[in-house]
Each structure stands twice: as C-alpha cells, then as structure tokens.
Design a protein around this nucleic acid. Structure first.
Lengths: 138, 138
DNA sequence: CGTAAATATACCTTTACACGTATATGCTCT
DNA sequence: AGAGCATATACGTGTAAAGGTATATTTACG
C-alpha cells in the first residue's frame, strides 16, 4: 500500500513477471506456470504491480489478463537519466573497443548525451597520502 | 552482504547519496550534512553502495572521498532497455503533445529506439466480456 | 443449482534491512 | 605521545515485506 517504483522492481519475482509481460499480456495462471510460483504469490505481486501502475488488468471470463503500463518505467528512466551522462563516457571507450571486435553488433543505440564532461577537477589530495586504499575499492 | 543493484537503489537515502555524487565526489561528512543523516547511516549506505560497485572511494587524509562508478548503472539501464521500446511509443504521442504546449523544453533527449513496433496484435477478448473491470485498474 | 476452475484475500511466520547508540580504528598536528 | 577529528563497525531493536496455507469470490458450464 506504500511502495514506490524502485522498491517494486527490487523484487526478483516481480521483475520476472514484468519480463514476461514485456513480450505479451498474460493471465495469472500462465505466469504461475512459466515462473513456477504459487498462485497466491503471483496474485499478490500482481496486486503490488498494479497499485504501482506497472500493469493493468482486464477481465476475460474467470481469468484476468495483465499487461504493462508505461508510466513507472518512464519514472525509472528519468532517474537513471541523471547518471547516463556520467557513465556514457565510460561506455564510449568500451563501445569503440567492442565495435572493433564484433562488427555485427549494431552499435547498441545508446543515448550518448556525451557532453565531454572531462572531470579534471584536480582535487587536492593533501599531505602524505600514499594512494594505498587499503581494500577500499575491494 | 548479498544485495544486487535493484535492491540497492530501492533505498531512498541511497538514491539521495547517488544523486549527490552525480554532481561531484563527496566526503562522508559532506554527505552527512547535506542529507541530514547520521554519520553511521551514511557510512553503512556507502559500504553497501561500494560493495555493489556503485561507488568507489579514495583516502584523503582522514576523510574518504566517494565517487560514482558506471558498472551497475549500465546493468540497470540494460534491464530497462527491454521495456523502452514498449513505452517509447506511448511517449512519442505524449512528447508531440508537450512539445506543442511548452516549446522551451528541449524535446527531452529520449533514446527513441522507436522501432515502429506498432503492436496491432488484435488480441481476442473472448465471449461475453463486458469490459467492466470492476476497479481492477483502480 | 451445484461443481469446478481461476483468481483474490486473510492470517501467520520468518527474515532481512534500516536506524540509533555506542565504540573502535585511523590519521593529523602539536 | 596524546588530543581530536573523520570514518568505520558492533550490537540491539523495530518493522515491513515475502511466502505458505487456507479460504473467499467470481464465473462458466453441465
């Protein structure tokens, strides 16, 4: 009754359900069988997804057909967009590399808002600091 | 010790931290003050983020400077990509609408992989089905 | 009308995360 | 060496979500 979009997709089973629905709408029973989950579990997840606006349902005799709704995906993407510029520059290099290795891949249509934000901020690393990072990055 | 990317960003405070780091690297104390969280809370979230590969840290005297790492964002985006085609067609219509209303908005740089997947699947809605949807979509 | 199928809900138990307080570790500077 | 700052960790507690079992609800169909 209170979860927002990010918590919704934190649940692996829910992501699996959304994955199924990405191909086409499905009934509860179909989801239940394909994902090997118990029926109540499926129903409860679908309820959560519905209340969060990820899916909608229509009645078809005794079954209910569920399909995706775009809203929350938008929202997630909007959040991710803030970081896209950041990692896109990393991807650029990698992409060139991969393009060279596998010319069949259609360049992976990345947004590439690649504003060349070359962060050369030159942060002062004060004093005796032997960049040793004892297991920080692990 | 076990969370993956989607659970990581389910936490609002962690998203806030990532949001801060999106602009520039920050020390624990700076995060603590800007987000009004207690220091242990910040440290623990940063630990989680670090173990999940969202951030990395370097030592600067007594402080640690944290900054973003691209990997997990990629992963999240890859998952979202499966659905992008789906909602992009919805956005297209909306976008045209908004562009007309507010010409200042720079068209919101959407990936727009708009493969014209015009889903005209014409699903059969069987039998006596009075589309009534008693509060399903709520 | 009664039964069976499909789905939703209620109730219970378990588990895992988030937070706070307290404390440990590590670095700097005098 | 000792004081003090910045950060990490330990531990206890509350809470909420997920899953299971049982049951209710709705619909089709004989």
């Amino acid at each position: 009754m209170c979860m927002e979009s990010f918590e919704i997709i934190a649940e692996p089973n829910r992501r699996a359900i959304l994955g199924l629905l990405a191909s086409s709408e499905q009934s509860v029973g179909e989801i239940e069988r394909q994902l090997r989950m118990t029926q109540p579990t499926v129903s409860k997840h679908l309820r959560v997804l519905r209340e969060a606006g990820f899916v909608e349902s229509t009645v078809d005799a005794q079954r209910r057909l569920y399909r995706l709704k775009p809203g929350p995906f938008q929202e997630l993407d909007d959040w991710l967009a803030r970081f896209r510029r950041f990692w896109s520059e990393h991807v650029d290099a990698l992409e060139r590399h991969l393009d060279r290795m596998d010319p069949s891949t259609p360049t992976r249509a990345t947004p590439t808002l690649a504003t060349p934000t070359k962060k050369k901020t030159n942060r002062k690393r004060r004093g005796s600091n032997r960049d040793r990072d004892k297991g920080e990055t692990k």
